[in-house]
Write a protein that binds this DNA or RNA. Structure first.
Lengths: 236, 236
DNA sequence: GTCTATACACAGATAGAC
DNA sequence: GTCTATCTGTGTATAGAC
């Protein structure tokens, strides 16, 4: 499977993406016609991510947002009751999607080596598909209020734990070397993050998502596989 | 050498840190008594980094900054002429220091394997010593105005190029395998960044800076050394 | 050199017409 | 459902006393 196949399969379920957001936030959305809501939510979120990812969420004024989304300030407040509520939706809606898709793909594999490859590949594909959401989540996570501090880091911790579980299973079955799984998982997470945090650089160097997937898997496997069955056969 | 030795050696030169800032920004600083300036610049920068790194530079008001630094708003404006100017100082002053120290240490080594280790170690030590500055530079780099766009990414590119040069030299002398040096350098950069971007996690797991140095070197070397002369001798 | 008090702009949010 | 007009708080920056 490569990225274009993945994207098709995900796009089907993404038709439900804004519908789900509508369902979950019905109580706070004054507009009731589903079709209208879905259409405008998409405009609002795309505009919000675009402006936030340029100068930060704080710097984005509601006036700017309205202009970018093609709606007046008054209209915007029919879809969220405060700027902070909009922030919450941007923070949470994508990660629900991510977890669902990631778990679905990983659960199809059963041996740790294959699960590791699938986790890396699927996470990279997801962050490519939802790059503005991933970037936003990372850059703005720190601004979340203290009382929700428990969930601040949960995004990063989530993927790290997924990887660590796979590594620990692989060590138990003798496929992976018994290195520090916690640090290794943390390193894998850092490599995955780099794809959506500095994508401009990969674009500049014409690195495709599938090249990066292959590279990342090779890099990680050279460190943690017992015998090195990497796809690279002629190391010099 | 370990971190505590490094810190001592750098702290000596850091006595000049705020003095240098004073020298470079003399034109814009109304206060003329050097002693006073240095004392207050330190208070202002520490406060600014603390508040910015909590909620972002935009969210930090000048009122908050004055309260945290123990100075009135009026006094603050004797040290910078606008919030944007303060931003510029925070963005540039640390990186000058970093480049000077990094080049000094790397130039002492001549073979690529040793240079690679030194680059990784020194960068990690520097980011540990100046963590709030590194974090700030990364998180706020995107908000820099478009006309200075050429230097926006220069921090990340700088360390990446340093690593890549070392790798390419090592490939030429046959020490490193001929993998994609650009992607490898990018991966190393990602691992270095992770230390200051999510340091809370390493603190939680009681990972010391020297443990992380050792781990990172082992991880990178397992990928790019021709024979694997890693310090880990019993891989299973 | 540092303070307090203030000017002026712009932010988020709402009311009420259409 | 969406608009325009407006309220009110807070931001940056400065003036002038000490």
């Amino acid at each position: 499977m490569d990225y274009s196949e993945f994207k098709q399969s995900v796009n089907l379920s993404r038709q439900d993406f804004y519908r789900r957001i509508f369902m979950e936030n019905r109580a706070n959305i004054r507009v009731k016609k589903e079709e209208t809501v879905i259409k405008n939510l998409e405009k609002i979120f795309c505009a919000a991510l675009k402006l936030s990812n340029r100068n930060g969420f704080q710097a984005m004024s509601i006036r700017d947002l309205g202009r970018e989304a093609g709606l007046s300030m008054g209209a915007l407040y029919a879809y969220f009751s405060s700027k902070e509520e909009l922030f919450g939706m941007l923070q949470t809606q994508a990660q629900i999607h991510v977890r669902r898709v990631l778990e679905e793909w990983i659960s199809r594999e059963d041996n740790p080596a294959e699960r590791l490859r699938t986790a890396i590949q699927t996470h990279l594909y997801l962050s490519e598909d939802l790059q503005p959401w991933f970037y936003f989540s990372f850059m703005e996570a720190k601004t979340i209020a203290v009382d929700t501090a428990a969930s601040i880091h949960s995004n990063e911790e989530y993927i790290e734990n997924v990887i660590r579980d796979i590594l620990e299973n692989g060590v138990r079955t003798g496929i992976f070397t018994a290195r520090n799984c916690r640090l290794t998982a943390s390193a894998v997470k850092a490599l995955l993050q780099d794809w959506y945090l500095t994508r401009w650089r990969f674009a500049r160097d014409h690195i495709s998502i599938d090249q990066y997937v292959a590279f990342t898997i090779a890099f990680v496997e050279s460190f943690c596989m017992v015998e090195n069955p990497s796809s690279e056969d002629h190391p010099a």
